[in-house]
Amino acid sequence: MKRELALTVNGRLAKLQVEDADTLLEVLRDQLNLWSVREGCGVGACGTCTVLMDGKPVSSCLVLARRAEGREIVTVEGLAASGKLDVIQETFIEERALQCGYCTPGFILSVKALLDENSTPTDDEVREYLSGNLCRCAGYGDIVRAVRVAQEKRRAGAT
Protein backbone atom coordinates (compact mmCIF):
# COMPACT_ATOMS: atom_id res chain seq x y z
CA MET A 1 0.00 0.00 0.00
CA LYS A 2 1.34 3.40 -0.94
CA ARG A 3 1.81 5.90 1.80
CA GLU A 4 2.89 9.50 1.91
CA LEU A 5 6.57 10.23 2.28
CA ALA A 6 8.18 13.62 2.80
CA LEU A 7 11.67 13.49 1.38
CA THR A 8 14.25 16.27 1.43
CA VAL A 9 16.28 16.10 -1.73
CA ASN A 10 18.79 18.71 -2.81
CA GLY A 11 17.38 21.12 -0.27
CA ARG A 12 13.78 20.75 -1.35
CA LEU A 13 11.00 18.92 0.43
CA ALA A 14 9.03 16.60 -1.83
CA LYS A 15 5.75 14.96 -0.84
CA LEU A 16 5.50 11.58 -2.50
CA GLN A 17 3.44 8.41 -2.45
CA VAL A 18 5.64 5.36 -1.98
CA GLU A 19 5.48 1.70 -1.10
CA ASP A 20 7.44 0.57 1.94
CA ALA A 21 9.24 -1.72 -0.49
CA ASP A 22 10.45 1.12 -2.73
CA THR A 23 14.15 1.82 -2.57
CA LEU A 24 15.50 5.33 -2.44
CA LEU A 25 17.04 4.72 -5.87
CA GLU A 26 13.65 3.89 -7.36
CA VAL A 27 12.01 6.95 -5.84
CA LEU A 28 14.78 9.34 -6.88
CA ARG A 29 14.67 8.11 -10.46
CA ASP A 30 11.07 7.15 -11.10
CA GLN A 31 9.37 9.90 -9.12
CA LEU A 32 11.85 12.76 -8.98
CA ASN A 33 13.58 12.00 -12.31
CA LEU A 34 17.01 12.54 -10.84
CA TRP A 35 18.79 10.72 -13.63
CA SER A 36 22.29 11.05 -12.23
CA VAL A 37 21.42 8.28 -9.77
CA ARG A 38 21.81 5.01 -11.66
CA GLU A 39 21.52 1.33 -10.95
CA GLY A 40 24.68 -0.55 -11.85
CA CYS A 41 24.62 -3.68 -9.71
CA GLY A 42 21.73 -3.52 -7.24
CA VAL A 43 23.91 -4.89 -4.45
CA GLY A 44 25.88 -1.91 -3.15
CA ALA A 45 29.09 -2.93 -4.86
CA CYS A 46 29.51 -0.54 -7.81
CA GLY A 47 28.64 2.93 -6.55
CA THR A 48 26.70 4.24 -9.57
CA CYS A 49 23.67 4.88 -7.32
CA THR A 50 25.66 6.76 -4.67
CA VAL A 51 23.86 9.66 -2.98
CA LEU A 52 24.77 11.65 0.10
CA MET A 53 22.58 11.17 3.13
CA ASP A 54 23.30 13.78 5.78
CA GLY A 55 26.59 14.32 3.97
CA LYS A 56 27.64 10.66 3.97
CA PRO A 57 27.72 8.43 0.90
CA VAL A 58 25.24 5.55 0.72
CA SER A 59 24.09 3.14 -1.98
CA SER A 60 20.58 4.32 -2.70
CA CYS A 61 19.77 0.84 -4.06
CA LEU A 62 20.11 -0.58 -0.54
CA VAL A 63 18.18 2.10 1.32
CA LEU A 64 14.42 1.87 1.70
CA ALA A 65 13.00 5.24 0.72
CA ARG A 66 10.83 5.41 3.79
CA ARG A 67 13.89 5.18 5.99
CA ALA A 68 15.38 8.25 4.33
CA GLU A 69 12.63 10.45 5.71
CA GLY A 70 14.01 13.33 7.75
CA ARG A 71 17.46 12.99 6.25
CA GLU A 72 19.12 15.41 3.82
CA ILE A 73 19.60 13.69 0.47
CA VAL A 74 21.98 15.17 -2.07
CA THR A 75 22.44 13.99 -5.64
CA VAL A 76 24.78 15.42 -8.25
CA GLU A 77 21.87 17.53 -9.52
CA GLY A 78 22.06 19.32 -6.18
CA LEU A 79 25.70 20.26 -6.54
CA ALA A 80 25.32 22.58 -9.47
CA ALA A 81 21.83 23.74 -8.62
CA SER A 82 22.79 27.39 -8.77
CA GLY A 83 24.20 26.89 -12.26
CA LYS A 84 27.77 26.97 -11.06
CA LEU A 85 29.59 23.68 -11.05
CA ASP A 86 31.01 22.38 -7.81
CA VAL A 87 34.77 22.56 -7.79
CA ILE A 88 34.92 18.75 -7.86
CA GLN A 89 32.79 18.60 -10.99
CA GLU A 90 34.92 21.28 -12.59
CA THR A 91 38.06 19.38 -11.69
CA PHE A 92 36.74 16.08 -13.04
CA ILE A 93 36.28 17.87 -16.36
CA GLU A 94 39.65 19.57 -16.35
CA GLU A 95 41.56 16.50 -15.28
CA ARG A 96 39.76 14.34 -17.83
CA ALA A 97 38.52 12.08 -15.07
CA LEU A 98 35.54 10.71 -16.98
CA GLN A 99 34.93 8.65 -20.09
CA CYS A 100 31.55 6.97 -20.51
CA GLY A 101 30.47 9.00 -17.49
CA TYR A 102 28.07 6.46 -16.04
CA CYS A 103 30.05 6.13 -12.80
CA THR A 104 30.94 9.83 -12.66
CA PRO A 105 28.13 11.21 -10.46
CA GLY A 106 28.81 8.49 -7.90
CA PHE A 107 32.50 9.24 -7.91
CA ILE A 108 31.94 12.98 -7.59
CA LEU A 109 29.70 12.52 -4.56
CA SER A 110 32.14 10.10 -2.95
CA VAL A 111 34.99 12.55 -3.48
CA LYS A 112 32.89 15.32 -1.99
CA ALA A 113 32.10 13.25 1.09
CA LEU A 114 35.74 12.27 1.39
CA LEU A 115 37.07 15.81 1.22
CA ASP A 116 34.34 17.12 3.50
CA GLU A 117 35.37 14.53 6.09
CA ASN A 118 39.08 14.76 5.57
CA SER A 119 40.56 17.70 3.71
CA THR A 120 44.03 16.12 3.44
CA PRO A 121 43.60 12.39 2.87
CA THR A 122 46.62 10.17 2.32
CA ASP A 123 46.92 8.15 -0.90
CA ASP A 124 45.75 5.06 0.93
CA GLU A 125 42.79 6.91 2.37
CA VAL A 126 41.78 8.13 -1.10
CA ARG A 127 42.03 4.62 -2.51
CA GLU A 128 40.14 3.10 0.39
CA TYR A 129 37.35 5.66 0.27
CA LEU A 130 36.84 5.34 -3.48
CA SER A 131 37.39 1.59 -3.75
CA GLY A 132 33.66 0.93 -3.77
CA ASN A 133 33.08 3.07 -6.85
CA LEU A 134 33.80 0.98 -9.91
CA CYS A 135 34.74 2.36 -13.32
CA ARG A 136 35.08 -0.10 -16.19
CA CYS A 137 36.55 2.49 -18.56
CA ALA A 138 39.08 2.35 -15.75
CA GLY A 139 40.09 5.99 -15.61
CA TYR A 140 41.30 5.52 -12.04
CA GLY A 141 44.59 7.37 -12.53
CA ASP A 142 42.78 10.45 -13.82
CA ILE A 143 40.29 10.23 -10.97
CA VAL A 144 43.00 10.12 -8.30
CA ARG A 145 44.66 13.14 -9.89
CA ALA A 146 41.33 14.98 -9.93
CA VAL A 147 40.92 14.35 -6.20
CA ARG A 148 44.31 15.92 -5.53
CA VAL A 149 43.65 18.95 -7.71
CA ALA A 150 40.19 19.46 -6.21
CA GLN A 151 41.69 19.19 -2.75
CA GLU A 152 44.20 21.95 -3.57
CA LYS A 153 41.53 24.17 -5.05
CA ARG A 154 39.33 23.72 -2.02
CA ARG A 155 42.22 24.63 0.22
CA ALA A 156 42.61 27.80 -1.78
CA GLY A 157 38.97 28.61 -1.09
CA ALA A 158 37.12 27.27 -4.12
CA THR A 159 33.74 25.58 -3.61
Partner: peptide
Protein backbone atom coordinates in the same frame (compact mmCIF):
# COMPACT_ATOMS: atom_id res chain seq x y z
CA UNK B 1 34.99 -2.69 10.88
CA UNK B 2 36.95 -0.37 8.59
CA UNK B 3 37.78 -3.23 6.26
CA UNK B 4 34.20 -4.23 5.52
CA UNK B 5 33.06 -3.89 1.90
CA UNK B 6 33.07 -0.22 1.04
CA UNK B 7 32.43 3.06 2.80
CA UNK B 8 28.81 3.21 1.66
CA UNK B 9 28.03 -0.20 3.11
CA UNK B 10 29.76 0.73 6.36
CA UNK B 11 27.82 3.98 6.57
CA UNK B 12 24.51 2.12 6.28
Amino acid sequence: FGKIGNVRVRTT
